[in-house]
Amino acid sequence: MQAAKLKSMYLSLFVAFICYLLPWSGVGLLIRPDFVLLVLLYWLLRSPRLCNIGTAWFAGLLIDLASGGLFGQCGLAYAVTAFFAVTYQRRLTLFNIWQQSGYIFILLILNQLTLWMLKLFAGGESPGWSYLLPCVSGILLWQFIMFSRIGIETHADKN
């Protein structure tokens, strides 16, 4: 079961990465949710043994490579977000879906703010409120990800 879970984890991360690579432009680019981070958070909460801060960090590096940004900035932001997700993971699995969504929303905002701070240090411009739009679209997408319950069906089938 563990191996099957691992496979579906990497597969879902790969699909999220492809979603990130789609040629977004204009408004779509502005509101594009952070697919990879959402899938990472799902697995972090579902099974922190398979997916931990290291996985998040490597995924962040991959995003940095694809985006052409400063090497390691997304890795750091993902690692920080993953840390807060893992620390409260045991409590979070007991939350109901609305409490979970609220916590995920805070994590998404935390990720954006960390990235923003790193970009400010690197000499970027200050983006304004539209910078937080991906958090809103992300929390909408989160409902679908929770609904999909990747990696849980296999467990139910076994029983």
Binding site: I53, F71, G72, G75, L76, A79, F83
Partner: peptide, 13 residues
């Protein structure tokens, strides 16, 4: 883990 990876990414940056 956080400290380790944060240090790694800061040095990479």
């Amino acid at each position: 883990r956080l400290i380790f990876f944060a240090a790694l990414s800061l040095s990479l940056m």
